[in-house]
Design a protein around this nucleic acid. Structure first.
Length: 816
RNA sequence: GCCGGGAUGGCGGAACUGGUAGACGCGCCGGAUUCAAAAUCCGGUUUCCGAGAGGAAGUGGGGGUUCGAUUCCCCCUCCCGGCACCA
């Protein structure tokens, strides 16, 4: 009887070995092929949750697999340490955010160590450290010099009771989470980074990124939302300034029956001065949060302003409305409405009794009733005077030409993408390095004065940033003129830190520059793994930041992440694990009970990585059972003593069959891990091979040799997923060198050959029988054998055979 | 509302390029071992009909293409992620 599987012992020993041997610390070796394997770094919330364990394990499997391919693998880890939860904890428990954060990092670091990830901890990055954020402050000042950042008014959620800005998350059903007061939209000056300056490049490069999932690329394309349209101006009766709108459908221009402006638009403000009803309506419009989802789902409301625009082609008067679905911060704050050919305009017109005019007819000449059903497709113009009969492109150009010739409009490219607002009215973030001087305006902090260090010893109250109450922080002298000035108290959006940390891992200790030559070796990231919830914002900001760093001469790399794997969430009872729902499973407990390998194995086995994973306690036990069977199978074999050399040509049929299974499995798992990232099927294939070994009962010399080959293969191939148990089993099999430095097994093509193959026989597509045929049989011979099958004959009977389809190696379909 | 994804046995999932639907695991049922239990091992397990051989149905719903559809096309339902201040 072999020694029982004791995960706590096995795992401790393996981890000790890796630590002593510094197995995962890597240098920049130009003679080796590098592989940079990265996971989206965690926010140090306090404890590791199952979602973390899942991503980190996926990434670790990839890192260890690539290492076995002979690559020089870097897998670092760090902390996305700024953010709201630290402030919330500070309010709740009176602990400064910094203290809370550092404590959490220490706690989570211990948990990570217990899971046996192949991290190079010498490169740890913590974003709330001044030596980290000084460089994004520095880059911000460079961007300032280049005009890539600017300040403008922008909408925030304002809590009128707590007198503070709220995050969208802190607005619940339109009310402040702490005060319960109705939230208002309010405009305040904020700093922006010009992401739109890179819109075309960010869009075009997506076509040359084969390593990213199509779904993510599509989402980014749609998010950037490049459109070609026309900007045109409508005169407004009694106003000097014309009203400018942008449209991608100038072909529908003759169908404009009203126009709408935002509640904050000057025309609305002016109308409100003389009309209290409009004033009340505008008041109502402002009482909502700033999230786009809210805006798009709320009831579309509007009021006529009592003024008219002049249709630029017909000279007809078009009524102007104020509407809650038009936002001042999008485009010009005004839209032209074509209810006949736009869904939202149609519904609004129906509700408010605005006329609906058909100006586009289906290209196929079919009849439509525009009063009953909106028609949004492109077609042929009607009721449009001299443009009648034109198709979309012709009409687009004719109308665009007309406006350009008359100077009343122009062709223009528009993006849905907006510039990135990086200001946050919060304490726990990197200070924006700007000083306000009455004479010089906004002045960037000079390089020598960086970093602007965030004071860490503070009391957080929940009503505004404590920085505002710290004269020693706020009161400074102007770097330009030396007069008294004030420091910016807003901090950066935490997405700023996460937009470049991946590059900093290459040179975390560089104090002379943001990046140094080591970044040239390691970047771009070869494999990036993280939650699909980051498909747009984080990934787009990182792609933007990488280009800003490139154009600053810090790197030659444009795209930060060559291959991307977006993993699904961990669910329990069909819902995301959360404290509120009380369905949280603590990884720590499971690791203590079953060991890290069991938890890692279950994570890999239970679902494909991109899909959500349903938690199952029984499933974890199943994984544990498998590891015990695996352990016993290898240990029993090893204890039976030495094994003679395998002689390929001296095997009997049973031995050949097991050897075939071994090499089929190597081929399959190599493909699963190397090409498909299909970890669940890789585990299943390993289980099948172990099952086959357990059924294999042949203690002869060659029998044991074949068995050893199978077991060694499984130990090697399971090692990325369950590295500790494999480390122990590898040495149990008599190896002097450690598994962590072994190479991936290769498969022997000749072992896969078969003399006879089984084909499925269908009659009219339905399975009716099976035939065994020689591997090299001709189609005619296969056909004859198939038709000779008794059950096949029953279904063919005397019906004429119309066709026989032979799919080589798979099936025969007889069509009667 | 818009963008992206998903739906397959009692459950998690497999079927990769249009070719045997249900691999592997869980659960359950039966058996072995045990004084008993746990653990372990062996066998069975989509549903329905049938003693069996075998047959019929079946991949969220409805239609289509095809010799053949979980896979491709059209329409729909429900669930999940994102929507720019959660990270």
């Amino acid at each position: 009887m072999s020694t029982p599987y004791k995960p706590e012992v096995v795992e401790q020993e393996a981890q000790q070995y890796w630590e002593d041997a510094r197995s995962f610390e890597v240098d920049e070796d130009p003679n080796k092929e590098k592989f940079y394997c990265l996971t989206m770094f965690p926010y140090p919330s306090g404890k590791l949750h199952m979602g973390h364990v899942r991503v980190f394990t996926i990434s670790d499997v990839i890192a260890r697999y690539q290492r076995m391919q002979g690559k020089h693998v870097l897998q670092p880890m760090g902390w996305d340490a700024f953010g709201m939860p630290a402030e919330n904890a500070a309010i709740k428990h009176g602990v400064p955010p910094a203290e809370w954060t550092y404590k959490n990092i220490a706690e989570m670091r211990g948990q990570l160590d217990r899971l046996g990830y192949a991290y190079d901890w010498s490169r740890e990055v913590t974003t709330c450290r001044p030596e980290y954020y000084r460089w994004e402050q520095w880059l911000f000042t460079k961007m300032f010099e280049k005009g890539l950042v600017y300040r403008k008014n922008s909408v925030v959620n304002w809590d009128p009771v707590d007198q503070t800005v709220l995050a969208n998350e802190q607005v619940i059903d339109g009310r402040g989470w702490r005060s319960d007061a109705l939230v208002e939209r309010r405009e305040i000056p904020q700093w922006f980074m010009k992401t739109t300056a890179y819109a075309d490049e960010l869009l075009d490069e997506l076509d040359r990124m084969p390593g990213w999932p199509d779904s993510v690329k599509t989402m980014q394309r749609n998010w950037i939302g490049r459109s070609e349209g026309v900007e045109l101006s409508f005169d407004v009766k009694g106003e000097e300034e014309p009203l400018t709108v942008y449209t991608t459908r100038p072909d529908t221009l003759l169908g404009v029956t009203y126009m709408a402006v935002a509640a904050e638009h000057p025309l609305a403000t002016k109308a409100a001065e003389i009309n209290p009803e409009i004033a009340a309506f505008i008041e109502e419009c402002v009482q909502t949060d700033a999230a786009e989802a809210t805006l798009e789902t709320m009831e579309k409301k509007g009021m006529p302003l009592g003024i008219s625009a002049i249709h630029p082609l017909t000279g007809d008067e078009v009524p102007l409305w104020v509407a809650n679905f038009v936002l001042m911060s999008y485009g010009t704050g005004a839209v032209m409405a074509v209810p006949g050919h736009d869904e939202r305009d149609w519904e609004f017109a129906k509700k408010h009794g605005v006329p609906i005019k058909q100006v586009i007819a289906p290209a196929d000449g079919s009849d439509i009733d525009i009063q009953e059903q909106v028609f949004v497709e492109k077609g042929v113009l009607v009721n449009s005077g001299k443009y009648d009969g034109m198709d979309y492109d012709t009409a687009f150009n004719a109308i665009a030409d007309h406006f350009e010739e008359t100077g009343r409009g122009r062709r223009t490219v528009n993006y849905r993408l907006r510039d990135w607002g990086v200001s946050r009215q919060r304490y726990w973030g990197a200070p924006i390095p700007i000083i306000y001087c009455d004479d010089c305006g906004a002045v960037p902090v000079p390089e020598d004065d960086l970093p602007v260090v965030l004071p860490e010893d503070v009391t957080v109250t929940g009503t505004g940033s404590p920085l505002k109450d710290m004269p020693e922080f706020v009161n400074v002298t102007c770097p330009k003129c030396g007069k008294d000035a004030r420091r910016e108290t807003d901090t950066f959006d935490t997405f700023v830190e996460s937009s470049w940390y991946f590059a900093r891992y290459a040179c975390p200790d560089s104090d002379k520059a943001m990046l140094d030559e080591r970044a040239a070796y390691w970047t771009p990231v070869d494999q990036y793994t993280g939650g699909v919830e980051h498909a747009i914002l984080h990934l787009l900001y990182s792609r933007f930041f990488q280009r800003v760093m490139r154009d600053e001469g810090l790197t030659d790399v444009s795209e930060p992440f060559t291959n991307l794997l977006t993993q699904g969430m961990v669910l329990k009872d069909g819902a995301k694990m959360s404290k509120n729902k009380g369905n949280v499973v603590d990884p720590q407990e499971l690791i203590e009970r079953y060991g890290a390998d069991t938890v890692r194995l279950f994570m890999m086995f239970a679902a494909p990585p991109e899909q959500s994973l349903e938690w199952s306690d029984e499933g974890v036990q199943g994984s544990y059972r498998f590891l015990k069977r695996f352990w016993t199978a290898v240990a029993d074999h090893a204890e039976a003593g030495a094994v003679e050399a395998l002689q390929k040509d001296a095997l009997d049929d049973g031995q050949k069959a097991l050897r075939r299974k071994t090499h089929q499995t190597i081929a399959k798992i190599s493909d699963d891990l190397g090409r498909r990232s299909s970890f669940n099927t890789a585990v299943a294939a390993s289980m099948e091979l172990i099952n086959a070994v357990n059924k294999f009962d042949d203690a002869s010399g060659q029998g044991r040799a074949v068995e050893r080959e199978a077991l060694e293969s499984v130990v090697l191939m399971m090692s990325p997923m369950t590295p500790h148990i494999c480390h122990a089993l590898w040495s149990a099999l008599g190896h002097e060198t450690a598994l962590v430095d072994e190479r991936w097994p290769t498969f022997d093509e000749s072992a896969l050959e078969l003399d006879m193959i089984e084909l499925v026989v269908q009659v009219n597509g339905k399975l009716r029988g099976r035939v065994s045929v020689p591997a090299d049989a001709s189609n005619d011979a296969i056909e004859e054998l198939a038709l000779g099958d008794d059950n096949v004959q029953r279904f063919v009977e005397d019906k004429p055979v119309r066709k026989v389809i032979v799919v080589p190696g798979r099936l025969v379909n007889v069509v009667v």
